[in-house]
Design a protein around this nucleic acid. Structure first.
Length: 308
DNA sequence: TAGATACCTTATAG
DNA sequence: ACTATAAGGTATC
């Protein structure tokens, strides 16, 4: 096992591990204390988070067990990590530690709601989740709460994931596409996926067979990427935007979910253009074309946590 | 092309 | 105790 630390002061801008990991963008991580994301801020802020990921670039079947925690503040703290290999490139990639968060905030329009959200969750960053797990998690997100989405992903890992050991502890990777494609709809329903079970199964089949891969959308113009992602079963515009934003690096993507839709009605009614595509354009322009997805994520977390 | 409806499951409100 | 409602929507008609 290797271990190390990343000094937050060396990053461009602040970093808050808990806000980043528990804000409903990523379902990749488990808290070591076993609590769900339901209990926001229910601990001291230095909890370990655990996952298993592929190395970068993702060219082999190798699996890397990894855990990380943040000690200290969002500008002067330390990220302690333990993994089977050097985790610095992995953490940098997954948690977008390479983003210049101060610059991103500076490039964001001075809207009061955005200011409040950015202030409240200083240091929250977007994530770069691996594409297939991200796709599945947001297919599962339809009509679900964050805590229950997280529960579904955890059950998928525990039931069908490949076991990997680190320092005597066993962790499970998110199952590969072929592994999920081989399950029956009813087996997936047994994990409480409900009507999402056939969507997950058929999407896994599409990826496993080589018919389609979510990563193909990388490099396309944003709106084409979103459109491309909707070929997966159970993926409409909203879920496509989540994958584009939380996995594929389209920082301008703004998933129009119920929270953001309500926000638009209350705060920016002129951005409601009737259709998803047109409202999306309008709110992207309002939030700043380049980093609108960053703004969306702050607003989502802020409002969900009872902000206004 | 736009609009209505069914859909699994569970926590929470009434 | 019950029943109704809503939860980061999508597919289908």
């Amino acid at each position: 096992m290797e271990r190390g630390a990343i000094d937050v002061a060396d990053l461009s801008g602040p970093f808050d591990l808990q806000a980043t990991v528990e804000s409903g963008q990523s379902y990749l991580w488990n808290r070591a204390d076993g609590r769900t994301y339901e209990d926001l801020h229910a601990h001291g802020g230095d909890e370990w988070y655990e996952t298993v990921v592929s190395p970068i670039p993702d060219l082999t079947d190798e699996r890397v067990p990894l855990r990380v925690r943040q000690v200290g503040g969002v500008r002067d703290g330390t990220l302690e990590w333990e993994a089977s290999t050097d985790a610095v490139p992995l953490l940098t990639h997954l948690l977008r530690l390479d983003d210049d968060l101060d610059a991103i905030r500076d490039a964001t329009p001075d809207l009061p709601l955005l200011e409040r959200a950015y202030d409240r969750y200083e240091g929250m960053r977007l994530v770069r989740d691996p594409a297939f797990p991200c796709l599945v998690s947001f297919i599962c997100s339809a009509q679900m709460r964050v805590a229950r989405i997280h529960g579904m992903q955890r059950r998928l890992r525990e039931t069908y994931g490949e076991a990997v050991d680190l320092d005597g502890e066993t962790y499970r990777a998110f199952p590969r596409p072929a592994r999920l494609a081989a399950r029956s709809e009813s087996e997936l329903r047994d994990l409480s996926l409900g009507y999402r079970a056939p969507y997950v199964r058929r999407t896994a089949e599409m990826v496993a067979s080589g018919e389609a891969d979510p990563r193909e959308a990388v490099g396309l113009p944003y709106e084409e990427a979103r459109e491309s992602l909707t070929r997966f079963v159970g993926v409409g515009d909203k879920v496509a935007d989540c994958v584009a934003l939380f996995s594929l690096g389209f920082l301008e993507a703004v998933p129009l979910d119920t929270w953001i839709t309500t926000t638009i009605e209350e705060y920016y009614p002129d951005c409601d253009r009737g259709s998803y595509a047109e409202t999306s354009r309008a709110i992207r322009e309002r939030f700043g074309d380049e980093y609108a997805g960053y703004a969306q994520t702050y607003v989502f977390y802020h409002l969900r946590a009872g902000g206004e």
